[in-house]
Structure formats: structure tokens, C-alpha cells
């Protein structure tokens, strides 16, 4: 009769080798997480300098009342905000993948949310000096569970941003952020469901999300962009 054997050694080796490969994979993930945090921290320093630059440009406008410089200042604001948004979107993705450094990512998200709000305030001040020229949209979003329409809303906003260029400035705020200033703004505009858009101080909310054509009309109410607003 056949003498059976148990390959205990092979089972243990295969199990340990599998664990080792997975551990290596996880280690690699941790190294990448660390690199991501470093990258976003460095990027934040750069965004901070950019903000100082925009702030000084505003001070210049305010002191000299030189309205001819408005397009340049708007251009700088738009470009800085574009870069800030790109990094913020990356942080959102990194934060979803993140397994260990939750606190660091929460702090980074908070820093970037505050940076968005700083730009929002600054853009408001610049607009007071320059008059019309830009439309500011404050966009409160949440996660998929709390805001099923946020994916589409963000996409429509990006699409309109591509159409309007620097004349449309979008400031995206994660409502889940544990930040007193965000709570203050939510209270001020009575933001209770998501997505909610604040266009030049006027609240726009809907059951799911604000459709493209509706949003276009509302933006065009404040905009001087004849090309994009001709049909609306």
C-alpha cells in the first residue's frame, strides 16, 4: 500500500514565502506613502509661496489702484489655484490608498482646505478692487456615501472650468474636514446637504447635483464671458 507523506516543510515554506512577498509589498506601499507625504508637504511650501505672491499682487493693486494689472493678478490666482487643486486631488486619492499615516494625511487635507479658503477670500478682495472679471464658486462636497452626486458635480464643474478658463474660479471644500472655519461657512450658508454650490455668495443646492445647463446660466449671470454665455 502507498505510504502517504505530509509535506509540512513545503507548506510552511510556501506560507512564509507568501507572507514575505506580501510583507515586501506592504513595505513598498509604506515607503511610497512616506514619499507621498514628503511630496505633498513640499508642494504645500510651494503653494504657500505662491499665495504670498498673490497676496502681494493684491496689496499692489490696493495701494496703486492700478486696474490695468487686474488680468495679470487674475491669471496668477487662476494658475495658483489650478496647481493647488491638482495637489489637493492627489491628496484625496493618496489618502484613500493610505493605510498607516492617517493623521498625517488628515492634517495635509486640512492644510489644503484652508489654503483653498485663503484663495477664496483673496479672490473676493481682488474682485472688489477689479470689479467684474471672475466668478467664484465655493463647492462643498462629501464622500460617495453622503454625496452620490458629487462625482458628477465635480466633473461638470471641471468641464465648465475648462470652458471659462481663468474667469471661473472653483474652490473645493471637503465638508467632512474637522475645521472650524468650514463649520462657520456651512452655518453661514446653511449647507446641510451635498453637493452645495455657493456662486458669488448665493447658495445653489439641488436634490442630486446642479446640471450643466442650469449651472451655466447661474455662472453667466455673474460672468462677462460673451462667448460661453451667448446661448444661455
Amino acid at each position: 500500500m502507498l505510504q502517504r507523506k505530509i509535506s509540512k516543510g513545503k507548506f510552511i515554506f510556501a506560507f512564509l514565502a507568501t507572507c514575505a512577498i506580501f510583507a515586501l509589498g506592504l513595505l513598498l506601499g509604506l515607503v511610497i506613502e512616506g514619499k507621498r507625504i514628503n511630496y505633498t508637504n513640499q508642494a504645500y511650501q510651494s503653494h504657500d509661496v505662491n499665495f504670498i505672491s498673490s497676496q502681494l499682487q493684491y496689496d499692489y493693486l490696493l495701494s496703486l489702484k492700478d486696474q490695468n494689472s487686474c488680468p495679470t493678478v487674475y491669471n496668477g490666482l487662476d494658475s495658483n489655484l489650478f496647481n493647488l487643486d491638482k495637489t489637493r486631488e492627489k491628496i484625496e486619492i493618496y489618502s484613500q490608498d493610505n493605510k498607516i499615516n492617517k493623521k498625517e494625511f488628515e492634517l495635509l487635507k486640512r492644510q489644503y482646505a484652508l489654503e483653498e479658503l485663503r484663495y477664496w477670500f483673496l479672490a473676493g478682495h481682488v474682485k472688489e478692487v477689479c470689479g467684474k472679471g471672475i466668478v467664484r464658486v465655493l463647492y462643498f462636497y462629501s464622500d460617495d456615501a453622503a454625496c452620490p452626486g458629487c462625482g458628477e458635480q465635480g466633473f461638470v464643474l471641471n468641464y465648465l472650468k475648462k470652458k471659462f478658463g481663468q474667469q471661473l474660479l472653483i474652490f473645493s471644500i471637503d465638508e467632512k474636514m474637522n475645521e472650524p472655519l468650514i463649520e462657520l461657512l456651512k452655518g453661514q450658508y446653511n449647507v446641510i446637504k451635498y453637493p452645495t454650490l455657493i456662486i458669488e455668495g448665493a447658495k445653489v443646492d439641488s436634490d442630486n447635483f446642479v446640471a450643466k445647463d442650469d449651472l451655466l446660466k447661474r455662472i453667466c449671470y455673474y460672468s462677462e464671458d460673451k462667448e460661453n454665455c451667448a446661448a444661455s
Binding site: G29, I32, R36, Y39, K86, E152, F155, K162, F209
Partner: peptide, 27 residues
């Protein structure tokens, strides 16, 4: 569908921003 499939506008002003850190290295 929320932008009536106006893909042309998206493609016209497309911006690539992919860095080495964006990939899921564990996987």
C-alpha cells in the same frame, strides 16, 4: 452624460499630471 458627451472640450484642454507616486506599488 452630465456634460452631454461634449468630449471635445475635455480633450482640447486636457492636462496630464501623472507622477511616479500615483501608482499602487503594493499591488
Amino acid at each position: 452624460s452630465s456634460i452631454n458627451f461634449d468630449i471635445w472640450t475635455l480633450l482640447k484642454k486636457i492636462s496630464w499630471d501623472i507622477s511616479a507616486l500615483d501608482f499602487h506599488y503594493s499591488l
